[in-house]
Amino acid sequence: MPLFLALPLPPPLALWRRDAPAEPAPRRMMPETAEDEALMRAAAGGDRSAFGLLVHRHGARVLRLALRVLGQPAEAEEVAQEALLRAWQAAGSFDPGRARFTTWLHRIVVNLAIDRARRLATAGPRTGPEALEAWPDPGPDPEAQAASAQQEAGLRAALARLAPKYRAAIALAYEEGLSGAEAAAALGLSERALEGVLYRARQALRRHLEEGS
């Protein structure tokens, strides 16, 4: 037998052997300043604390997007949880060469939220006054709220009547710190196509506002 066949395999090759023992999940802590992609690599290796950092970093935006598409806090929380859980389960298939982590995550959230909104619409819409009452107050200043309460209520009612995809486009377009390219990618559109969707969404919103006034 040739000598090289008798030699033990080096560690990288040993991982490919079917009978190699399963590696325990790494326990090292990632620094809080680590980039999203590094945290996702660690999460793909089973590091739950690394994924916890990602949830802490992006949870608010995930919830905000879900809330703006669905308009109902309880449904939004469920969708946000589901989206983050899916991101955890699919951490191994995340490819930083194809998309940024935030783009990938926003796409999961938006798709889930649009699906849920469509299902809710077919099950019996709750996008009337009931849903509007459930929306949290937008600002801390009660006087400013009182001054524009009627206008905002009208706008919210008009938003609630928009198609879920239009609401998603508006939610992404008005999301601070999100570029046009990222917003478009989250919807699976080109930037030009997103502009078109936004134009139609605003037109529909104006129409609903006029009808409501």
Partner: peptide, 18 residues
């Protein structure tokens, strides 16, 4: 108006989510 009216989740909801 959109910037004002778009809903924002409160801190408690974010903490609950985490």
């Amino acid at each position: 108006a959109l910037r004002r009216a778009l809903p924002r989740p409160d801190a408690a909801a974010v903490a609950r989510l985490e």
